[in-house]
Design a protein around this nucleic acid. Structure first.
Length: 172
DNA sequence: GCCAACGTTGGC
DNA sequence: GCCAACGTTGGC
């Protein structure tokens, strides 16, 4: 019998403990927060990033323990559905070399890879924080994901924005 | 399914 | 290095 508690209660080392905060988008049809929470150690290799700005965030700025807002995009009700953390293990995203992979990049080669990935660890599901509710918060007025025309799949979140969202989740 | 906004490409 | 054309994203 599987010990459910051991799957769902993060260990002490699996907490948001970094200096920065991020928002990462995923299509729930592809990989939802529910998928992530039942993966081994709740880890997911964040592959398929094909934007240089987003890649550079992973390469240069993300640290183990950084907090992540898990966003569901391209779905009926886009918004924040979970909390995760950066778990490190930055490496080459090998899906770029596979012609059969939807993330194949014919202009990349193993001796000069373009695209990187790292591990993200899901921590918990949250109630859905949908766009309309987020827009009601004055503290979130500058939040990247809420700006018109925003398409970046990884965006920085300020400490004030993070605190505001944690407050919403705690019912404040 | 629409379409505005954006990133990338490549001819010049 | 400019910039028009193109492909993609993603909320609506």
């Amino acid at each position: 019998m599987t010990n459910i508690a051991s799957l769902t209660v993060p260990s002490a080392s699996s907490a948001v403990s970094g200096q920065r905060y991020w928002l990462m988008k995923n299509e729930p049809d592809e990989y939802s927060i529910d998928h992530a929470l039942v993966a081994p150690d709740q880890l997911m290799g964040w592959n398929g990033v094909r934007n240089y700005q987003a890649r550079n965030f992973m390469r240069d700025d993300m640290q183990i323990g950084d907090g992540v807002l898990y966003w569901h995009s391209s779905c009926a009700e886009p918004g924040i559905y979970g909390i995760a953390r950066i778990a490190g293990n930055l490496r080459v995203d090998t899906s770029q070399f596979d012609p059969a992979d939807p993330y194949y990049d014919p202009k990349s080669s193993p001796d000069k890879p373009r695209w990187l990935m790292l591990d993200v660890q899901a921590l918990r599901k949250t109630r859905p924080l949908l766009i309309a509710e987020l827009r009601e918060q004055p503290e979130l007025g500058d939040m990247r994901v809420l700006q018109k025309g925003n398409r970046l799949s990884i965006t920085p979140v300020s400490q004030a924005e993070w605190k505001c969202i944690m407050g919403l989740l705690e019912g404040r």
